[in-house]
């Protein structure tokens, strides 16, 4: 797992069904709209130290809607 903040998370809005797993696991990176569907906070940049949470969010999404972009 990279230890520098070069990661971005992104929620694929078409795939998200509002399971709320990403927000529960990484509230620093995801927020919900009024319907409970998720999106990344800001541009999705993952601050240093939150990489593991980002990967957990990705690997717990039942709809495979959370993507991680390594830049």
């Amino acid at each position: 797992m990279p230890d520098r903040a070069t990661l971005k998370v992104r929620v694929n809005r078409d795939k998200c069904q509002g399971h709320n797993r990403c927000k529960a696991l990484a509230p620093e990176l995801f927020e919900l709209d009024e319907y409970g569907n998720a999106h990344e906070i800001g541009d999705g940049a993952v601050p240093a130290g939150l990489e593991e949470k980002a990967y957990l969010a990705k690997s717990n999404c039942p709809e495979f809607a959370v993507e991680i972009i390594e830049e």
Partner: peptide, 13 residues
Amino acid sequence: ENRHAAFGLGIHR
């Protein structure tokens, strides 16, 4: 890592 489907998958979550 637990991508379980207990609450369903797709539009009927």
